[in-house]
Computed example of a mutant assay.
Amino acid sequence: MKTALIVRHVPREGAAGFLQPIEAAGYHIERVDVAGTDFPEVDLSEPDLLIMMGGPMGVYEADIHPWIPVQIDKLSTRIAKNRPTLGVCLGSQMIAAALGARVYPGGTTELGFAPVTLNESGAASPLRHLAGVPVLHWHGDTFDLPDGVERLASTPAYANQAFRRGRNLLALQFHAEMGEDPRFEEWLTHFWADLDCAGACRHALRADHARHGPGAVAAGRAMIGEWLGALDS
């Protein structure tokens, strides 16, 4: 059976809605937490599929989180081998860093449900399933577009919302996996500082989650399923 490894930067940010298409594609899923003592020994090049999820830390905070340069180094090795890799939010920023791009605070917190704007490449990619669909945004960091990749989507606040390199590398700044996961309540509790920065209201976000979440997850699952089905072996 094919193997998929989910890298979790914090327990409350898992693969959520993406689990269904990953399992449907025939992958046996395992997980590793970056804070675990075994993480430095994990070979990120070994799994058939690597999924790196989000987290509240910044790629530039290696002095606080010593696992960050370890992960970037291992990720660089995997990407050089063209192994299938998906990054979400912090995971996308890790991919950008592993490709040599600068990751930095973006100056504004993008938080809430809103659609991404697909460019021509994005509309011809698996992201086509997201066209017009409000998905969850929750970040304040961004990155320069790495050399040799293809931008797929943008928003007014941040130009680099998604990119890919070939068939096997996909980076998503937004959270199309979130919309039906009960851990969203933990985001509202634990990431309260983000709400203050964005001027966001918990009650409004909760209502938007109920209204837009199912559609976002359905579109996100279709996107990931199509992406997985087109991977180079």
Rank of each mutant, 00 (worst) to 15 (best):
T155Y: 02
L170E: 10
G179P: 13
E30V: 00
A157Y: 05
R31S: 03
P84V: 05
G132T: 06
P182N: 15
V103A: 00
P156V: 07
H65M: 12
E110S: 08
L5D: 00
G213V: 15
L86E: 00
K74E: 13
V7Q: 00
P47D: 03
A200W: 05
D33P: 01
Q71S: 07
F184H: 13
A162P: 04
A97V: 03
A176W: 10
L5Y: 01
R151G: 06
R164E: 07
A62R: 15
T37P: 04
D38R: 11
A131N: 09
P115M: 02
Q93R: 02
M52S: 12
F163M: 08
A25N: 04
P156E: 09
E30C: 01
P214V: 10
R202E: 14
F113M: 08
V133M: 04
D43Y: 03
A219E: 07
T3Q: 03
E23F: 01
L145V: 09
I51L: 15
A222E: 05
Q20K: 06
D147G: 13
G132F: 09
G58M: 12
V88M: 10
A24G: 01
A97S: 08
A210V: 10
L111T: 00
E177G: 14
Q173W: 09
A210H: 06
E120P: 00
R211E: 11
P69W: 14
H212I: 10
P214N: 09
M178P: 10
P56S: 13
A98P: 09
F39T: 02
A96Q: 03
T189Y: 06
P56D: 12
V133F: 03
V10D: 00
D147V: 08
K74T: 13
E110G: 08
R165G: 14
E61P: 15
L90H: 02
D232I: 06
L50D: 09
P146R: 05
C201F: 11
A24V: 00
P115H: 01
I224H: 05
T108D: 02
G166H: 12
R164D: 04
A123N: 10
L172H: 12
E186G: 15
L136E: 08
Y104L: 04
A200P: 06
R202T: 12
M57Y: 07
A4S: 01
A200D: 03
S121C: 07
G36D: 03
Y27H: 01
L5K: 01
P69Y: 14
D141S: 13
K81Q: 13
G112P: 08
R102W: 01
G17S: 01
Y104F: 15
H9V: 00
D196N: 12
S121T: 05
R183M: 15
R183P: 11
D147A: 15
A101E: 04
Q20V: 06
A193G: 09
L50V: 12
G87W: 05
W227C: 08
H175Y: 11
V88N: 07
L205P: 00
A171E: 14
I95R: 02
V59D: 06
D63S: 13
